[in-house]
């Protein structure tokens, strides 16, 4: 048995038949080959699988694919559609806000979502927005520095 999904993924309409037991993470990675979204635990504890669902960060390993029907999904692949890095990505490069890079898509997406809804967050708000994503390399200081830079405050 499959279900049919009609979603907007990275700005494009996508229609796809999928097994209803699959998670959004599995469909993104295995059916749509959007492998920039990473799995670190599969049970909603590490945050590396964050995508934006109607603009809100969600751990895609805890979202059934069916729940994305009719909704807008944004992954890291959608942030630089014409090869131009968005402001957060540019700031991450400049500040060196990553090391192994495995959590970076989730960090970049969450930071982008934060700045879309609040163009001048304070540090506490930044930390809260990213508090659910683990970075074992401990890139946190430079991640914070990058987000501050992306708000224009650090310039």
């Amino acid at each position: 048995m499959t279900i049919h999904l009609e979603s907007t993924i990275n700005g494009r309409s996508v229609g796809i038949n999928v097994d209803p037991t699959l998670t959004l993470l599995e469909v993104l990675r295995e059916n749509l080959f959007l492998i920039g979204t990473k799995e670190g635990c599969g049970v909603g504890e590490c945050g590396t699988c964050v995508v934006l669902l109607d603009g809100t960060p969600v751990t895609s390993c805890l979202v059934l694919a069916g729940d994305a029907d009719g909704r807008d999904v944004e992954t890291v692949e959608g942030l630089a559609p014409d090869g131009e890095l968005n402001e957060v990505q540019q700031a991450f490069v400049k500040s060196g806000a990553f090391q192994c890079g495995f959590c970076t898509p989730a960090m970049v997406l969450s930071a982008t979502a934060l700045l879309r809804r609040n163009s001048s967050p304070n540090e506490e708000e930044m930390k809260q927005a990213l508090g659910g994503i683990l970075c074992r390399c401990g890139a946190y200081p430079k991640i914070l520095e990058a987000i501050i830079a992306a708000t224009g405050e650090g310039a």
Binding site: I35, G36, T37, T75, V76, E77, L79, A80, L85, Q89, F92, V93, K94, G96, F98, G101, T104, P105, V108
Partner: peptide, 12 residues
């Protein structure tokens, strides 16, 4: 900047 920057911030 690190040489792996773009690959990592774009998820590539």
């Amino acid at each position: 900047p690190r040489v792996d920057s773009v690959d990592k911030v774009t998820g590539h």
